[in-house]
C-alpha cells in the first residue's frame, strides 16, 4: 500500500517571511491528519501547497491517484491538476462563500462537479443533488434555493456536499467549522466524521481549534513559525505534548 499523499521538504516564503519550511509527512488511506498552530504559523500555506494551489519553492508533493498512479502534484499539467481537484479531491474552505456559487441554487452547486465530468441528464443530476442535500441534513425542499438564503452552518454543509458528490478520495479542509456557532459546529463535526468514515476518505484538516482536532483527526502536526515542531497520534500529542510550544498550546485551552 502507498501513502495517498506524501510531502517532503516543502518550503515556501513570501518575500522575507518564511511561510513554511521543510515540512514532510505521509498520509495513509483513511487517515485524517490535523495541522494545528496559531494564526500565521503556516498552516494554510501548507494546505495550499499540498492542494496545488500554491507552488512551493522546495520539496515535492506526491499523490497516489486512482486514475494516473503516483503523480507529483507540482509537475502535473494544469489541466490534469484541475481535473484531479474536481474528481479525486475536495477542498472545503473556511468561508463557504469562497467554495460555493452564491448566485445559483443549491442543486446547481451540488450538480456542478457532475456536469463538469459529463453528466447530462437533468433529472439524474437533480436526484443526486437532492440525495446529497439529505445526507448533509438540509431539508430537500431547499434544493432550488440559493445559498444566499442559507444560514452559515447550512452553507458549510452545502459546500461539503458540493465537494463530496463526485466521490473524492482526498479532502483538504481549511478551518471547516471556523466562524460558526458552537452548536452548529457540533453537527458539522459529526457530519464530517461520519462521512470520512463511511466514504473512507483521507483528509488534511487545518484548524486552530484543538477540540476540533481531537474529535476529527487521527494524527496531528503542530506548526510554529512555518516549522513542524511536533507530530504524532492526536490524543498522544494533546495528552502528552513533548514540545514546549505544544505544551503551551494545550495548556492554553479554556476548560469547559
Amino acid at each position: 500500500m502507498n501513502p495517498i499523499l506524501s510531502a517532503s521538504g516543502l518550503g515556501k516564503r513570501f518575500g522575507d517571511r518564511v511561510a513554511c519550511r521543510d515540512v514532510g509527512f505521509d498520509l495513509w488511506p483513511g487517515e485524517v491528519l490535523g495541522v494545528v498552530g496559531e494564526s500565521g504559523s503556516g498552516k494554510t500555506t501548507l494546505l495550499n501547497c499540498l492542494a496545488g494551489r500554491l507552488h512551493p519553492e522546495t520539496g515535492t508533493v506526491v499523490y497516489d491517484s486512482a486514475a494516473y498512479g503516483q503523480v507529483d502534484v507540482h509537475d502535473l499539467s494544469e489541466a490534469r491538476r484541475r481535473l484531479l481537484s474536481r474528481t479525486e479531491w475536495g477542498f472545503v474552505n473556511q468561508d463557504a462563500r469562497e467554495g460555493l456559487r452564491m448566485g445559483v441554487s443549491a442543486g446547481a452547486n451540488i450538480g456542478e462537479r457532475l456536469m463538469a465530468i459529463g453528466a447530462r441528464h437533468y433529472g439524474d443530476i437533480r436526484r443526486t443533488a437532492s440525495e446529497w442535500l439529505g445526507r448533509v441534513e438540509i431539508e430537500q425542499d431547499r434544493l432550488d434555493d440559493r445559498p444566499t438564503t442559507y444560514s452559515g452552518g447550512m452553507r458549510q454543509r452545502l459546500q461539503i456536499a458540493r465537494n463530496l458528490v463526485s466521490g473524492p478520495r482526498l479532502v483538504f479542509m481549511d478551518e471547516p467549522t471556523g466562524g460558526l456557532d458552537v452548536s452548529v459546529q457540533a453537527r458539522i463535526l459529526d457530519l464530517l466524521r461520519g462521512l470520512v468514515e463511511t466514504l473512507h476518505l483521507s483528509a488534511v484538516l487545518v484548524t486552530h481549534d484543538l477540540g476540533v482536532a481531537r474529535l476529527l483527526t487521527h494524527r496531528l502536526m503542530v506548526m510554529q513559525g512555518g516549522r513542524v515542531v511536533e507530530e504524532g497520534l492526536t490524543d498522544q500529542v494533546l495528552d502528552d505534548p513533548q514540545d514546549a510550544y505544544t505544551q503551551m498550546l494545550v495548556a492554553s485551552i479554556l476548560p469547559v
Partner: peptide, 22 residues
C-alpha cells in the same frame, strides 16, 4: 481563457440547469 483551454465547461451547464430549476 483557462476554462476554454481545458474544456472545463461545467459552469455553462450549471447555468442551463439553473434555468430548468427556475
Amino acid at each position: 481563457r483557462t476554462l476554454h483551454a481545458l474544456s472545463e465547461y461545467g459552469v455553462m451547464q450549471v447555468s442551463l440547469y439553473e434555468s430548468i430549476a427556475r
